Amino acid sequence: MDPEAESAPPPSSRLPWDFHPALTEERLRLCARMLANARRDALAMASYELGDDPWSVGCRAFAFGRHRLKRAAQSGDYPWLEVLDDSAHFVFVIGSNGHGVPVRFYRGAAEDPTDRTLRRQELEAEQLSLALGEVAAEGLVFRFAVETGEGGRVERVVFLALRGEERVECFWPVPLDLPAAAGGTAEQLRLIADDGYAGPARSQIGTPPLPASLPRRPSASVAQRRQTTLF
Rank of each mutant, 00 (worst) to 15 (best):
T117H: 14
L118N: 12
L118M: 15
R119H: 13
R119L: 09
R120G: 01
R120I: 09
Q121D: 06
Q121G: 10
E122D: 09
E122N: 02
L123D: 13
L123H: 12
E124R: 04
A125N: 10
A125D: 15
A125P: 00
E126M: 05
E126R: 07
L128S: 01
L128C: 03
S129G: 07
S129R: 04
S129Y: 01
L130M: 04
L130N: 04
L130P: 00
L130K: 03
L132T: 02
G133A: 07
G133K: 01
G133H: 03
E134W: 02
E134K: 01
E134D: 03
V135T: 15
A136K: 12
A136E: 05
A137R: 02
A137K: 00
A137W: 07
E138R: 10
E138I: 01
E138L: 08
E138D: 12
L140P: 00
L140I: 11
V141Q: 02
V141P: 04
V141H: 12
V141L: 09
F142R: 11
F142T: 14
F142D: 07
R143M: 03
R143T: 09
F144G: 14
A145F: 13
A145D: 08
V146P: 04
V146G: 06
E147V: 10
T148K: 12
T148R: 08
G149A: 14
E150H: 12
